[in-house]
Structure formats: C-alpha cells, structure tokens
Design a protein around this nucleic acid. Structure first.
Length: 469
RNA sequence: GCUCCCAUCGUCUAGUGGCCUAGGACACCACCCUCUCAAGGUGGCGGCACGGGUUCGAAUCCCGUUGGGAGUGCCA
C-alpha cells in the first residue's frame, strides 16, 4: 500500500520570486497533481534578514499566477519554518542525547587557525570526544559516521559521497538557534514529505540531510535534483546580473501560460514535435526520470516566441480583455480619459499578430488616442526626403476630404495615385503613415485611418505638411 | 584546493545498442504572400567535445582527457 505522495516547495522569502523557483514549484505541482498527491508550501523564513510578511504574500500571488492554486485540495500551507523553531531545537537535543551530536566550543577563528596549522580545510572534529556539556556560545555539531552515503536521486541515479569528506556540521548555533539544514529536515519529517524535488545546488547538502533522517529514525524521502537555470555565460541565474524576477516578466506582458509552458521545456520536453502544449498535457507526461542532467539557458528570446504563440492563440475577445490593463494603465502615453475601447476593438485583430508581449500594445495604438501623434523625427526626415512626399500628401489631402471613409476606398485611391506617380504603394504610403501615426511601422494603414476618422486624419496631414516646409 | 554534477545544431530539446543519411522548436538566412511591420507558407544553414575500449553494430555502454557547472558559513 503506497502512501499519498507529498511534495514540497520551500522558498526563502527574499523579496521577489525567481524564475528558477517558479520552475521548481511547477515541477512539484505537476507531479503532485498527476500522482494525486499534495503540494506543501513552506516558507523558510528563519533568517531574519530574509523575512518580511509582504514577501510571503508575494510568493502566494506568484504561485497563483503560475496556476498553483492555494485553495486547491492538493495544496497545503503555507507553513512557516520560523514557527517550528522549538521543534528543531528539541530534535537537536535528541540527537545529542542519542550520541549523534556533540557540543563544540571552537570559534570560527580558532577553527581557521587549526586548519591553517594542519594544512587541511574546515573543521577537523577537534571536539568530537571532548565530552563537552552544553554551554553559552557552544555549537552543537553532528557526528558524521564512517562509511559512505548513497543518495538515490530520480534524475541523477545513485550519487555516492565518502563520509570522510563531510565535516561535522553545525546543528545549533552558539546562540541556540537551529541551522537551516536541521530545520529543513525536521520540517520535512514533520510534514511527512515523501518527495524532495529541488535545484541541483542542494545536492552537496543532501548526504548531510539523509544522515539526519536516519539518525532521527526515519527513512529519507525520494530525492530529485534538477539542473539549475543559467544565463548566456552559463552561470547560475543571479538577481544581480540577470533578469530573474517573475514579476518583471508579468509586467512586460508575458502571459502566465506562456511562462509556464516555456519553463517546463527547460530541461524537459513534451512528447511529439511541438513544445507548445497545455498544462494538462504536461501533467500527463512529465516525469523526473526524463529531466535532462545539464543546466539550461533561460532564453528570453524563446520565451517571447512562446508568448507570441500564446497571444495569437487567444480569441479576439480574450485578447481585448487581456490588453485592457495595459491600455488603461497609469503610464500610458495618452490622457486616460481619451482612451476609447470601441476604437481599440476595431484594430485589435490587426494588433494581435503584431505583438510579442502585451507591453507593446499601447505604442502600437497610441495614435488613436493622442491629440497629435508622437512623431519619430528620424522617420519623418527620411520619408519626407522623398520627392513625391509633399505633392503626394497634398493630393491625398484633397481627395480624402470628400472620399467615402472606408479602408477600401482609402486604399483604392492610393492605388490609383501609386500608378499615376509611378511609386509603389509600399513606398508611397510611408509619408502618410508617419504623418498620421508618427511611425514608419504599425497596423495596416487604411484600417487605422478608417478608425481614426476623416477629420483627425486631415488635420494630421496638414500638420505634417506645414512642418515639412 | 577539495567534494559532487554535467557534456546532441548558436540555444532548448528528441534520441535509452540497429528504425540516425541524428528528428523538432527558438534564433538566423532565402523565397512566396503583402499598403509598412508582423503573422502565415516553403526551403536552407547548423550538432553527437576528444581519445581509447566493449560489440557484428555505439549519439546511446565502459574508461580516460578536455571543457563547463554547482557546493564548499555559527546563510537559506
């Protein structure tokens, strides 16, 4: 009879949610879902400097954005490591009483001196058999046994560590507070965790944790250490150098589904030859045994490609709804009261295939809501340098004053002009586009004009004509 | 330094001894479509780090070399 699998995600609240953490959380969540297990969230807040209540709600929000729903029956927590401190300390004392740990009065400086004198690194086990009693400033150290420790890891297979290469590590600090390693293990035991899936950087700590599990009389969980995410220099993603905050990607208009899908293809791939798959497929197919062993480059370009796919897959109604927050934000280039959703709806379809992130949307339609367009000077100079530009615009102005105001009629007229002036339509329309939208690229021009309206179009042509002389 | 991990196109990956003339995706290039730009379509470029084994047969197994990475706190 197998027990229900209990996975866990144990971030420390450092102020923002890291994309690497997001991937680890997603791995755990996918597995818990598929196996009918539980996803336990534990906030590892035992370091004072990494603790602030709003960080925690930030984590919950980030998880929710990723689709990890804290109200799901398969979600448990959040638990707070700091609240279990007495449990950690009690366990440490049990370890002392059973002979698995001992007290040590060496200061870090003394340890360094001894290491220097002996030519070996680290703590040398000096206090192992000194039979010290607990006392002020004394740390409790784990007595690492002889032998070897084998970690059964689902992604890496068996990893062997020589115990002699592991020093007697600290369980309790001189001030009596528990160390992370201990707290982590005690919490996992307490929460009946059966599967630990986390980043590879924890692998070197795992033998210590496994020894703790055994010393405390428990069978260790199933381990799985997944490769880290790296930057183009192939270094672990760091918040100092790299853009790693999930929030930043959300703010630039990355869709959660795209982020989730992309993250899952780092170190793993769905079956078949498309990587764009719904979460349900991922849950069906994801197995730790299939996770790649080497670090994966977090490629923003590919993330954007995924995002473009997801944006284009949206129904037009969903696309409009998804754009709304970006079009009604504070920092939009037009006066908020000038925003007209009906106008946006008319061009939405044309915008949808032209953006990769939602943050690009406002700049693509700003000319509709601005009194006067934001003129790109370089584009203006370049397009108005053409000989035909001014005469063309003058004729355009004359014709557009009376023509039927539909994109077809608008275009038809330019087609005729194009033939007459022997300038290809593609070139011909450029000055018009710059005059009206301020830019050289954008949604199809005649549809844009139709939505803009005759009056505003003519005014902008006038403005352009007068500034070009 | 020491411990551990890793190695398929530029990048993310498929591949678990014969289906591999190594497949897909992103990026890149070309062409088609086209009112700009996209989107879409078609095609192209490009890889098993190296050296030894094992085997009738190796990207796949073993060993070594080289190259990367992670860890190495009274941080988490």
């Amino acid at each position: 009879m197998s027990q229900t699998p209990r996975y866990r995600f144990a971030p420390s609240p450092t102020g923002f949610f890291h994309v690497g953490g997001a991937r680890t959380a997603l791995y755990n969540w996918a597995l818990a879902q598929r196996e009918g297990g539980v996803f336990v969230l534990r906030i590892e807040d035992t370091d004072e400097s990494r603790n602030s209540p709003e960080w925690t709600s930030g984590i919950i929000d980030a998880l929710a954005w990723l689709g990890i729903d804290s109200t799901s029956p398969q979600f448990e927590g959040p638990y707070f490591q700091s609240q279990n401190a007495s449990l950690h300390i009690a366990a440490a004392h049990r370890l002392y009483e059973s002979g698995h740990a001992y007290w040590c009065d060496l200061t870090p400086e003394q340890i360094q001196e001894r290491a220097k004198a002996s030519g070996k690194q680290g703590y040398d086990g000096y206090s192992r058999d000194r039979g010290l009693e607990p006392g002020a400033g004394r740390v409790l150290r784990f007595r690492v046994p002889e032998g070897t420790t084998v970690i059964r890891d689902l992604v890496r297979g068996d990893v062997e560590f020589e115990n002699s290469s592991i020093e007697d590590f600290v369980l309790l600090r001189g001030n009596g507070s528990p160390m992370f390693l201990l707290a982590n293990v005690i919490d996992d035991i307490e929460m009946r965790i059966t599967n630990v899936v986390r980043a590879e950087e924890h692998l070197p700590n795992t033998p210590k944790q496994q020894m703790l599990w055994h010393s405390l009389g428990h069978e260790p969980p199933v381990w799985a250490h997944v490769p880290v995410l790296v930057n183009e220099q192939r270094k672990k993603l760091s918040k100092r150098r790299d853009k790693v905050a999930l929030e930043q990607y959300k703010d630039e208009g990355i869709l959660a589904e795209a982020m989730v899908n992309y993250l899952m293809t780092l170190g793993w791939a769905p079956h078949g030859d498309t990587e764009i798959v719904p979460w349900s497929t991922i849950v069906e197919q994801f197995r730790l045994e299939d996770v790649n062993h080497s670090p994966a480059f977090f490629d923003v370009k590919k993330l954007h490609a995924f995002n473009g796919e997801y944006i284009r897959a949206l129904s037009i109604a969903d696309f409009i709804a998804t754009c709304r927050p970006w079009l009604t934000a504070e920092d939009v280039p037009w006066n908020a009261d000038r925003y007209n959703e009906d106008a946006f709806i008319k061009v939405a379809e044309l915008v949808q295939t032209r953006v990769v992130t939602l943050s690009e949307v406002p700049a693509m339609v700003d000319f509709l809501f601005l009194d006067t367009p934001i003129i790109d000077e370089q584009a203006f100079a370049k397009t108005f340098a053409a000989e035909f530009a001014v005469p063309f615009l003058e004729r355009c102005r004359a014709a557009y004053a009376s023509i039927d105001w539909t994109h077809d009629a608008l275009k038809l007229h330019l087609d005729a002009l194009s033939e007459e002036l022997v300038v290809k339509l593609g070139k011909l329309q450029a000055p018009l586009r710059v005059a009206v939208t301020g830019r050289t690229v954008g949604p199809p021009l005649f549809e844009s004009l139709e939505v803009l309206g005759r009056e505003r179009t003519l005014r902008r042509i006038n403005d352009a004509l007068s500034r070009s002389v």
